[in-house]
Design a protein around this nucleic acid. Structure first.
Lengths: 158, 158
DNA sequence: CCTAAAAGGTTGAAAGATGAACTAGCGAGG
DNA sequence: CCTCGCTAGTTCATCTTTCAACCTTTTAGG
């Protein structure tokens, strides 16, 4: 009688795939960050701008924004404070729930977003999308969707 | 005559694939980090242990380790200092080049590595590998390899 | 109603990451 | 055999992330 089950190590193929996946992520993140730097934005900033710009009234509740961007409330709070200092965003009270706050895109935030977006998209294409054959992207998406769901359902707090 | 080329925005399909990819990465990283936490290790720690344990003499030059793990020299230096305090690793001088240092796996580092590895592998399987159909993983790998190469060649310092 | 628990956010301190400036050793050209 | 530039690594200051403690408002129960 065994007290522990034998470990199912990764096969060579699995190992390669896994490491490549990890590497692509790190490298890609770095690269996108670099490409955004001349505009004085980080990926975090950008992602928040995108989320707000796609929302009605260019505003979102802090909590919703936190879970949309998969960050902790604390982290988001600091993040928004920084962006507030950069005049990209402003906080506004919520009438219907006096605990709540909205993060609202400022004029300058919107302009920044619109100015930067084309460059960022180009960057995403250059370093990722356009490097994949049309169908590979579809496959990727199909394969990754269940993983995302699994992880989403499975997670405690970010 | 146009002064700027029209932006090639992402199609819906591209957008979905891209966002899923981003999400999987973030969620997956979080999850793996969480699963490693009970053992007092971070993914960074773990990755370094792996690299060292696979090297001859259980040692690597700082620079090589830095580029193997895609970190800056500065970051690695701090990282190794922390791991040194945790007695996972020790620094050792290089005879042939007196500027150089080796990071060397300690006894305790090796034990830790061996004890934790099965759990980490299980975690990677549970949250990623085993969620993908056999061939999807191959596809993923084939698709991502050129991306990794592109990014590697393309990059300045981490 | 009144109270207790939960939800929405913020804050502060400690840990980690980043980038530039710095030290020391190597090595190639004059 | 100098010296000037390069490589290896560390350090310091600054910014970001994390975690736990903390308010305040809302909601649910009795």
């Amino acid at each position: 009688m065994e007290t522990e089950t034998a470990t199912r190590w990764l096969t060579d193929a699995e190992q390669c795939a896994w490491r490549t996946h990890l590497d692509v992520n790190r490298l890609l993140t770095h690269q996108l960050e670099r490409d955004l730097q001349p505009f004085g934005l980080t990926m975090n900033d950008y992602e928040i701008l995108v989320n707000l710009s796609e929302s009605e009234g260019l505003r979102m509740r802090m909590s919703d924004l936190a879970s949309a961007t998969l960050q902790s409330k604390s982290r988001l709070s600091h993040q928004i404070t920084r962006m507030e200092n950069a005049d990209l965003v402003r906080r506004e009270n919520c009438e219907s729930d006096r605990r709540g706050l909205f993060a609202v895109l400022t004029e300058h935030g919107l302009e920044t977003m619109q100015r930067v977006a084309p460059h960022h998209v180009a960057s995403v294409r250059r370093h990722f999308i356009d490097l994949l054959p049309e169908d590979a992207l579809q496959e990727l998406h199909k394969a990754l969707t269940p993983v995302a769901e699994h992880l989403r359902s499975h997670r405690g707090k970010p």
